[in-house]
Design a binder for these strands. Sequence first.
DNA 1: ATAGTGACTTTAC
DNA 2: GGTAAAGCCACTA
Length: 121
Amino acid sequence: MTPRSSRPIGRQPKSRAEHLQDERVQRVLATIDSIPRGAVASYGQVAEEAGLPRSARFVGHVLKRFVNDAKVPWHRVLGSDGTIRVQGGTARDQARLLREEDVKVVKGRVNLKVCGWDPED
DNA sequence: ATAGTGACTTTAC
DNA sequence: GGTAAAGCCACTA
């Protein structure tokens, strides 16, 4: 038989669970997971380390969508100038989590010269 | 396929 | 120091 018309498409819409398997997402999460305690990285830096240059916004998008399911140190990801970018009460949580690991947060900002993550470490 | 949006970044004022 | 605009990439309607 040639079930051309009934042949499975093999291209079903991605479910949320399948999205979690998406390699780009996994690489982003893995990169964030590799940020050592007490260090911070920017969205762009995470993207670049994950092999996704210029995809800083994607990193933010991934965090917002998957951080609830993925146990990663999301609080160690900041803006390119070390500022907390998250809005709302989550920003307070992020600052608290950072201070818990001895990262100084002054006026919603971290000194990247001091706490910036060097992937070579 | 087009348009709007966002946990971004860089440049210019 | 701060704000504005443009560039950027992926997601959503």
